[in-house]
C-alpha cells in the first residue's frame, strides 16, 4: 500500500529534482513535510522497490548515441528467463521485456539497444543473438522522438 504521505512525495517529484544544494528540502516543502521525513519515507520506498532510483537522464542523442534500435525476437517461453537475464547484463541495453505475442505478430522478446552508430548497434544485436542462440530479428531504429517525458502519477486523492 502507498500511504497518502507517500503519494505527496511521488507528486512532489513529478517535475524532478532542482539543481541546488538541498534539493530534497525544496521538494519536502512542496509535499508539506520536513526534509528528514521526506528522505526517510523516500528511503523506505526505495527499500520496498517502489522507487527504482533517483538519478539523471541525459539527452543521449546530444551525447553521441545516435543509433537507437528496438529489437524483437521470438524466444521459446521456457528460455525467456535465461535469455532475459543474460541480455539484461549488456551495458548497451536499456530496456528488456518479454511481451505477450499476438496472432499476426509472434515476437515476444523486446530489447532497446543504444550505440554511437548503426554499424555498432547491429554488431551488438548480432552478438546478443549469437550468444543467446536467437533466430531472426526485427529491428526498428528510431528516426524521430515525438514524446519523451516522465510519467506523472496520480493517486491518494
Amino acid at each position: 500500500m502507498i500511504e497518502e504521505k507517500d503519494w505527496r512525495i511521488v507528486c512532489a517529484l513529478a517535475d524532478g529534482l532542482p539543481i541546488t544544494y538541498r534539493p530534497y528540502a525544496v521538494l519536502a516543502k512542496k509535499a508539506g513535510m520536513e526534509e528528514e521525513e521526506f528522505l526517510s519515507r523516500l528511503g523506505e520506498l526505495k527499500k520496498r522497490g517502489v522507487l527504482r532510483r533517483v538519478g539523471a537522464v541525459i539527452q543521449h542523442r546530444q551525447a553521441g548515441f545516435s543509433a537507437n534500435a528496438l529489437c524483437a525476437w521470438i524466444v521459446p517461453n521456457e528460455r525467456l528467463d535465461e535469455v532475459g537475464t543474460a541480455v539484461s547484463h549488456e551495458e548497451a541495453v536499456s530496456h528488456c521485456y518479454s511481451r505477450a505475442p499476438v496472432s499476426q505478430w509472434p515476437y515476444n522478446f523486446y530489447v532497446m539497444i543504444h550505440a554511437q552508430d548503426r554499424k555498432t548497434c547491429e554488431e551488438i544485436a548480432d552478438r546478443i543473438a549469437d550468444d543467446c542462440h536467437l533466430g531472426e530479428r526485427k529491428t526498428f531504429y528510431s528516426v524521430r522522438e515525438w514524446k519523451k517525458e516522465s510519467m506523472r502519477y496520480h493517486g491518494g486523492d
Binding site: V10, I19, Y21, V50, V54, G55, A56, S150, M151, Y153
Partner: peptide, 26 residues
C-alpha cells in the same frame, strides 16, 4: 551544481528525477 546547470542549458542533461516502479504504484 554549476556544471550540471550548464549541461542542462546546453541540452546534455534532460533532468534529474525519481523513477518509480509503475506496477507498484498501481
Amino acid at each position: 551544481l554549476t556544471r550540471l546547470e550548464t549541461l542542462r542549458k546546453d541540452g546534455f542533461l534532460r533532468r534529474i528525477g525519481a523513477y518509480f516502479d509503475s506496477d507498484a504504484l498501481g
